[in-house]
Simulated assay, not measured.
Amino acid sequence: MADLKYELDPSPEVGALDDLPGPPAGKASPSGGDSAEGPDTGLLDRAHALLAEHPVADGYSGLPWALRHLPWFDLELGESAVDTDVPRMREGHVAALFWALHLPEGLAGDQAVGATLDQLDLVKTVVRAHPEGLRLACTPGPITDVQHCGRIAVLPGPAGADAIGDSLGILRSLHGLGLRSLTLSGVSWASEAGLTRFGEEVLREMNRLGVLADLSGASEDTVRRACAVSKAPVLCARSAARALRPHPANLPDELLAELGAVGGLCMVPLTAEQTGPSVRDVADHLDHVREVAGPESVGLSGTYDAGTAHPQDLADASCYPHLVAELLRRGWSETGIALLTWGNVQRVLREADFTAREAQRRREPSTMKISELDG
């Protein structure tokens, strides 16, 4: 634990937010929503001030795949062809985000592995080309350092499970190249029937490496078994509340409760399809997930540049203050919002990092093959 202590964020603890200063002069943003429902300027001022202290750690961005189709782009100057660039992330107080490596349907086997490697290379290339705005950061300590330097931390992942084929060696290689999250669905060892014995071995090796398990879109049996097997917190990078909107990737209340019981994290996506067409709909999901899973198990996923429509007034990465203003209007405490935007993601990353350090002391890299466990 001593090693972990030195990586803790030196910024103010969320419990001390009651004395949070007001926003600097001239920081007010345009009001979100129509005049009857949108938050007033005072709430937006408070939202900007709070996010300046505890910015957003965004759980899912589809930017790598979107950038593949552009002949030229500059994310530091601003790029209108996508929903995410450095100016808009700074306006929205985004300090860290996961860049998803998910692939179009139809790619499998060696094609999926190769396409994932291409995307990892693209992520590194894009980050190197934008040194004033972006930094690659894969553990909690560097992520905090990047934030304090005024840059935005980029974490590669999640990738689809088919990115590793059936090889733990490929998983280790992808981790060595920067992968930090893997979605456990759509493969023979993580299917509607749940995790197989090999799937459990994959999860244990992910724990040993510090690769987070993303359970968005996974079957209920897979979610339950992953919660039981994993020694590190699991997350659902794009899941809202099925009780409010019956989307297949949204979680029923019993799974939300199980996720909260093991310290997992449900990251609510800002998409009209999963959460609804308005800021209030998104806030309803956040209220529900917080009530069922607990305040330390709810986070945010912009899901920008992933080919989905977004609620009104949440069109791009600059719009997080509108959502935070709505939560303040509903009576969320500053401490609760700080956990939602930054604290919960940092906790999950730190616990996964600590779990990996301990596992590496006790466990050698797994050499098991799918034929030996599931054959």
Rank of each mutant, 00 (worst) to 15 (best):
G186A: 01
E53G: 00
L259T: 15
A100K: 08
A315Q: 13
V211D: 05
S239E: 05
S167W: 01
K124F: 03
E254L: 06
A66W: 01
E326T: 07
G169I: 06
P24M: 08
G141M: 09
R362W: 12
L17C: 07
A96Q: 14
H285C: 01
A49I: 02
G331R: 03
P269L: 09
L340E: 04
S167D: 11
D214V: 07
G62A: 10
L17F: 11
S333N: 01
D221I: 04
A49Y: 08
T275I: 00
V187F: 03
Q312V: 14
D353A: 14
T125R: 15
V289K: 02
S230G: 10
D34H: 10
G22D: 14
G294V: 05
G42Q: 08
D9T: 10
I164A: 05
A161H: 03
L184Q: 03
L327M: 13
I337A: 04
L300T: 05
T139D: 15
G22N: 09
G336A: 15
T183Y: 05
H288L: 08
D3M: 12
R350Q: 07
R329Q: 12
P142T: 09
L256M: 15
G194T: 07
G133K: 06
G141S: 10
E200R: 14
S80T: 14
L203R: 00
S371N: 10
S366T: 12
L63V: 08
G114D: 12
T116Q: 02
L286D: 03
V14Y: 13
L171R: 06
V202A: 05
S173R: 05
E334H: 12
S333K: 00
D145R: 15
